[in-house]
Design a protein around this nucleic acid. Structure first.
Length: 745
DNA sequence: CGTGGCATAGTTTTT
DNA sequence: CTATGCCACG
């Protein structure tokens, strides 16, 4: 019983209440993951529930991974049988097994956002719709929302009524689904949608899973959309042992379909539901919580609760107002240096990804190591998508988009015209695109190009044989790079580009190796599947001593000793979209975002904002964010950081450098994790730059490949220094300092 | 068929 | 400002 003694009384109640529907309203930092994991342990150890009968669902792989780890530690008997996974991967697992019952093949491929875009573009073009009126972004989001609400194309059309535009979108939706079906593909939304579809049409399958999952737990319940709600509802409907944990004040994904009503109306959906509130916070100081409470109190549609803590008051919240956005960035970085904790104790949060740039620049110029979460997903990078498309083609060749992506990468002299011919013939014959390539000779009008298609096909076949012959993924990717001439082509693009891209590919290789070595029966298919469902935040490597830069959205579920909320300006945060919206709920969502941001801080919270900042090349002026004003004056210290003050600050002697600071690691109160010997995957997101260069224009330097040369110029290119060097042998080259590793001679 | 240049449009957040 | 798309030229 000892493990439960560490829980407070409310937490205990939630853990011990195992039968029937249960809603746990868990405020920020109130230990909800602890409750979930202990509840799982309790079910197994005390209630003798078979681990096999437990399902725990989260939103991100990271959360699932953490829960998995904690469950494995806590539960003695067969913890691995507990199904801990995300919505999306649970659905994939179910669909792989039973999707044939709703007319798909079980080896369906999963389309990511880019794939969807490609398909959508094609359809919009084919329908000759005015691209101004039907932008693919808008159409896609309309379709996505429809899927989140479980509306199929037919219903969409019915709902459209007499609205011409809506009717057209319904038509696009219909065609889009047909196209996906033809390619035996599902997009992200389909994964949920089709699982619900499967459960609704096949009572046998539903019953199987209802029996299997007698105890269901859902984390971050406030983020579920209607489709996910129905899914859970169906699964839980037989035994009704459903425990959902969430915080309505942290619902920040309305824009992608999250339905806050799922949590607010839980008691109506399950009339005999128990409700337990967790209001004791273990994370932050009272000052921080007071600020959070004060802000969120302005929202109307919420369950009433007030966080409190036994921690002390702590230091006051600070708001720093700057003139310019770059001064704000500078101020934050200076403050971090002055404060003097290990870098990993700090997070700088912002509303939009674009804001990261200024902060990055200042981190670079002050030698502060940082880790950037978000931005372009690693798996969306061109070179990664290329290699993955090769792998997909090698795996089965059924993913037409993948094949089309690589058929002329690197250049094989196969142009758009030939591809169009093959595509047309393929659909005429009812063949997949790859199949059609195999039979290129039979395609009418292809003439000379047919040989090029055949060369491509035989190359793919060669790779397949490698795989069957026992090659691992590392060898395979290596072979692709060499034999297709991909590496060659990259190099032709330029030294800097090629190096960055090859480094990214190396990251992919290490990911592949990691998978290959840790799996009992590794398969290419399974690897590709894992890769399809990862998000940025999943890869965040928190073992390195770096400042974290990310959006408020990415920050949910995390905590840091010191948090900077930057860009606290009306029009930016809250966004002007929300301010001018006639739906009050939009502004409330922004406020919840502010609440999430504030409650990430454990000890110190600094809000910052600027009067002016450059947006889209023009200067914009902004008032202080209304959220700052919602914090009562006695809780917050406001500082005007004007240009004059800043000059004084700058005049001070340089702060301890990064290297010196590293020595403090391990001595500090926080973050004692040691750096692993093998760099974790995710390095691609951290930018390690050379702080200052020991060479400048006019100096002689040596490059590993190009030999000696003279530095022409050094330019601070934002993320890195761009150096122009005139090499004796090869002439002038542009390169990034951190990659070029130039040596002064 | 490929490339390079120009024009235009877009900016919230992402599983 | 930047990324993408389209068009015209080689």
């Amino acid at each position: 019983m000892a493990i439960y003694d560490t829980l407070n009384s409310m937490q205990k109640e939630a853990v011990f209440c195992t039968e029937g529907p249960l809603l746990v309203l868990a405020g920020a930092g109130s230990g909800k993951t602890r409750v979930l994991t202990h509840r799982i342990a309790y079910l197994i150890e005390e209630k003798e529930v078979n681990p096999w009968n437990i399902l725990a669902i989260t939103f991100t792989n990271k959360a699932a991974g953490e829960m998995r780890e904690r469950v494995d530690k806590l539960v003695e008997f067969c913890p691995e049988s507990v199904w801990v996974s995300t919505f999306h991967s649970s659905c994939v697992r179910i669909l792989r097994r039973f999707i044939d019952r709703i007319g798909y093949e079980s080896n369906f491929s999963i389309y990511d956002t880019d794939d969807q875009k490609t398909v959508m573009k094609r359809i919009l073009k084919r329908m000759e719709l005015d691209p101004k009126q039907f932008r693919e972004r808008a159409v896609m989001s309309a379709i996505s929302s429809a899927k989140n609400e479980l509306i199929d194309p037919k219903q969409f059309l019915e709902n459209a009524g007499g609205d011409w535009r809506e009717k057209k979108i319904a038509e696009v939706y219909q065609l889009y689904q047909e196209e996906l079906k033809k390619n035996n593909a599902l997009d992200f939304d389909d994964l949920i949608f089709k699982t619900v579809d499967l459960f609704r049409t096949d009572a046998e399958v539903l019953d199987y899973y209802q029996e299997r999952f007698r105890y269901i737990m859902v984390d971050e319940y406030q983020d579920t959309n209607t489709a996910q709600f129905v899914l859970i509802h169906l699964l839980a409907n037989k035994y009704k042992n459903l425990c959902v944990v969430g915080d309505d004040d942290q619902s920040i994904y309305r824009f992608r379909g999250a339905n806050i009503q799922n949590i607010l109306g839980f008691e109506e959906a399950f009339p005999d539901a128990r409700v337990i509130k967790l209001e004791q916070n273990y994370r932050s100081t009272m000052h921080i919580l007071d600020a959070a409470n004060a802000v969120i109190r302005n929202n109307k549609g919420r369950k009433d609760k007030t966080l409190w803590t036994a921690n002390g008051d702590g230091v006051p919240v600070v708001f720093c107002h700057y003139d310019q956005a770059y001064e704000e960035a500078e101020g934050i970085v200076n403050d971090i240096l002055k404060d003097g904790r290990p870098f990993q104790d700090y997070a700088v949060l912002y509303r939009t990804n674009a804001q990261s740039r200024l902060i990055e620049e200042k981190c670079i110029s002050h030698n502060v190591p940082y880790r950037l979460v978000g931005g372009i997903n690693f798996y969306q990078r061109k070179e990664i998508k290329d290699i993955l498309s090769y792998l997909k083609t090698i795996a089965n060749g059924r993913d037409d988009l993948a094949v089309q992506r690589i058929i002329n990468v690197p250049k094989r002299g196969i142009g758009a015209a030939s591809i169009a011919k093959v595509t047309a013939w393929a659909s005429e014959q009812g063949l997949g695109f790859y199949e059609a390539c195999v039979r290129a000779l039979a395609v009418p009008g292809l003439a000379k190009s047919a040989g090029k298609f055949q060369a491509f096909v035989s190359q793919i076949e060669e790779f397949r044989q490698m795989l069957q012959g026992g090659s691992d993924l590392k060898e395979l990717i290596e072979a692709i790079l060499e034999k297709t001439g991909y590496r060659e082509e990259l190099k032709a693009e330029g030294e800097i580009e090629a190096q960055t891209r090859l480094e990214n590919i190396d990251e992919l290789v290490s990911k592949a190796v990691d998978y290959w070595d840790n799996q009992e029966h590794p398969t290419l298919d399974e690897f590709l599947e894992q890769v399809a469902l990862v998000a940025d935040i999943d890869q965040m490597d928190d073992s390195e001593n770096r400042v974290t830069l990310m959006t408020l959205h990415s920050a949910k579920g995390l905590e840091f000793p010191v948090v900077y909320l930057s860009g606290m300006e009306d029009g930016l945060f809250p966004s002007s979209m929300a301010i001018f919206s006639d739906d009050r709920a939009d502004l409330e969502e922004e406020r919840r975002l502010a609440y999430v941001g504030i409650t990430r801080a454990k000890e110190r919270l600094v809000l910052t904002g600027a009067r002016r900042r450059m947006v889209n090349g023009e200067t914009r002026f902004a008032k202080v964010s209304r959220f700052v004003d919602e914090i009562p004056p006695e809780l917050i210290e406001k500082e005007q950081k004007n240009t004059y003050e800043r000059r004084n600050e700058q005049a001070k002697p340089t702060e301890p450098s990064w290297k010196q600071r590293q020595g403090q690691l391990g001595v500090s109160k926080f973050g004692m994790k040691s750096t692993p010997a093998v760099p974790a995957f995710g390095k691609a997101f951290t930018v390690e730059k050379v702080g200052s260069l020991d060479y400048g224009p006019g100096d002689r330097v040596r490059h590993i490949k190009f030999g000696e040369g003279t530095v022409m110029s050094v330019q601070d290119g934002g993320r890195d220094f761009e150096v122009r060097v005139n090499f004796d042998k090869v002439g002038e080259k542009k390169m990034f300092a951190s990659f070029a590793k130039l040596q002064k001679v």
